[in-house]
Design a protein around this nucleic acid. Structure first.
Lengths: 220, 220, 220, 220
DNA sequence: TATGAATGAGTATTCATTCAT
DNA sequence: AATGAATGAATACTCATTCAT
């Protein structure tokens, strides 16, 4: 989930520090916490009203801090969105785990489709992704982040498809990477549709899996 | 193309009119022309800078009219977007023609995929669709238009898929309507990717067709 | 005086106009009046609190208009200052009249010094000039205006000095233009001092005239 | 030069101190160094962007200290400017030396004009003086400093002029103090002009000296 | 002394919309 | 239908200063 931010990475070797070092550490930790508060508030605002409709003041208020202080933690509204886009990467890592399992390609694919669909069943994930896609069109740095995040998934998927082909489980598709991208797109497209038409993702996912697997499975 | 607006639908039965009627007609025609000017200007602005970044003033200036006058033709910025979303429907009509051809289901599908991909090869069509999708999330009237436009295509597609199944050309998919929606989503998803990664649609479309047809074709 | 703005230049040939032309004219006149209101308000604000301390809102409020409307008349705060600097030119024209009189050079010079000193006896003229000088350092367009305004005076003065030399009334100074500039500087410098030390200009001007004339008069 | 700040005035009698006294001294010296760092940074900022455009943060950053720490050394931004205005006095002391020489009044005057012009040939001195003049208009404490600094020079000049008159080298001006002030004003006015029109002071100074001396020298 | 997070009023400017003409 | 002046709330962001550590 996007909205559980980081407090960790500070837990090591606290014992053998000087008083000053400990104070500095505490400050750092407090600061990181503030950043997370702000990011969390921003995510909620962006979800509710969209990036452009959200004012910096809204974010600050929601985060429970003063407007000016927000600028002590982020260079501006844009940077907040960038950071959020970067956080999304963490969410995707869990799917990499699924994709790196040793099972057969078809099993992994089905597993992945189910898990990713479940993730996308949460409207906030869909909306946030759309919000970011939308900004990516005109803001190169966000575009890059977006593409990179995607590449993480599609590269891993490509490897699976490739292996599936080699092992004879999947048919020989013309371009495994493109096929992987299509899988992602079919999933996210359905998710967007599920939000817009207020159809639960559960009612859709079966068909999606059938559609994808039918395309990829080798004919027996 | 979205940006060639209508002057027609006024050409009929002009002959048998009174002078006053003719004057009224001329005014109507001029007014319709203004609307189109504004819509065209708005489309260009939305493409260049996005819906939210575009000011009503920008649109009016680009349309070559005064700011105030825009409000004689549209109730506001929102209405302009609504109208544009409605215009999109006209663009899609051409694909309905393709889908209503008498050929075999696979032939029609391939034909459709190629034609729709070509349409989406124009980045402005992709961007505008994204812009509208993005607004649809929070603006119910736009959502409805968007869904309706989609339904036009997917309903027609569904009929083709259904026929293909009955004629034994396509495999029996669990839900032809869902399958049709997935076809659209896979196409639009790829189109968005082609814009973002600056890959031409032509380099992608082969794989898309292969992906879709492999999923749908009956095994011989 | 800087603060009596223009309403004139619209008085001619109003009779023979169409209704629309008259309406357009009335609007133009009203608009020009608004600009003057704003400029006058801005001058007062700049005098009271200085350019940087003055907010655009202050100006608008003082001019009795809304904040947003100010931007219908000026591109921004900077432009208001530019316009004020341009208005200063009008104030200086009266001194050109003095300088173009046919009297002897020494008589003209004395006359000019007295008149310009009287002008600078009004603290608002001094302060406004200082405010503009101050901005001129870092804003090239204002610098240019400032230099141009100065040149109007110094060029005219130079001609007088030149004539005075030719007619044997003034000593042969090495560079009449530079001498002219020094005359202006000595006057404005004293004026600034009179403001800062709260000494009236009248107590100073005698010495200034003596200083300048002693420098320039030919020895008999 | 304004920007070489003081480290001296601490060098005396260090030897015969207790350890505690030495520590206190060291601290004082370090503190004085910080103040100078800050003042130097502030001068650079004020020169580059002007007093009002410069933020306290800019000064602190440039001085290499933290924002908060600046307030341990100065009560605020205003105080920094006051201190700078006070430092200017040191710069002027060197001219007092010139003015207290035993030479003839005309010789001293020429010498002074040349030296002061050279000082003002550095644009930073001119700009800083203008920046301070500008603030002096509305900030009484700065006005007072400014006037005091001026008085140091003009008083000394007045004495010279007075002596010149008594010794028959200069003509009997109506008010030697006023004459002295005019000398300063003519010099600073030219310096400002040289900055604005990007004419080097060297190209101007000859005329300035001629202008002043012609005014003051007794006719032989 | 030193830090930088915190504050909240303040900045110039833009916004969609209305309205008198 | 056409104009653009008028509005005032909203925009993202900066400010000098304070304060806990």
């Amino acid at each position: 989930m996007l909205y559980t931010m980081n407090d960790r990475s500070f837990n090591i070797e606290i014992e053998k520090m000087s008083k000053d070092e400990k104070a500095g550490l505490a400050r750092k930790r407090a600061t990181a916490k503030r950043r997370d508060q702000i990011l969390e508030a921003a995510v909620m605002c962006f979800l509710e009203r969209g990036y452009h409709q959200t004012g910096v003041r809204d974010i600050a208020t929601r985060a429970g801090i003063s407007l000016g202080n927000l600028y002590n933690h982020f260079r501006g509204k844009h940077d907040v969105l960038v950071e959020i886009a970067m956080l999304e990467r963490r969410d995707l890592e869990r799917f990499l785990v699924i994709l790196s399992s040793g099972s057969s390609a078809p099993a992994i694919l089905k597993n992945f489709i189910g898990a990713y669909a479940k993730y996308l069943a949460a409207p906030e994930n869909v909306i946030l992704t759309l919000e970011i896609s939308s900004e990516a069109i005109r803001q190169p740095d966000i575009a890059q982040l977006f593409v990179e995040n995607r590449a993480m998934l599609t590269d891993a998927l490509e490897a699976i498809v490739q292996r599936g082909i080699e092992e004879g489980d999947l048919r020989t598709v013309p371009d495994p990477l493109q096929a992987s991208q299509l899988i992602i797109e079919v999933l996210e497209g359905s998710a967007y549709r599920s939000v817009l038409s207020e159809t639960p993702m559960t009612a859709i996912i079966g068909c999606v899996e059938d559609f994808v697997m039918s395309s990829l499975l080798a004919q027996q």
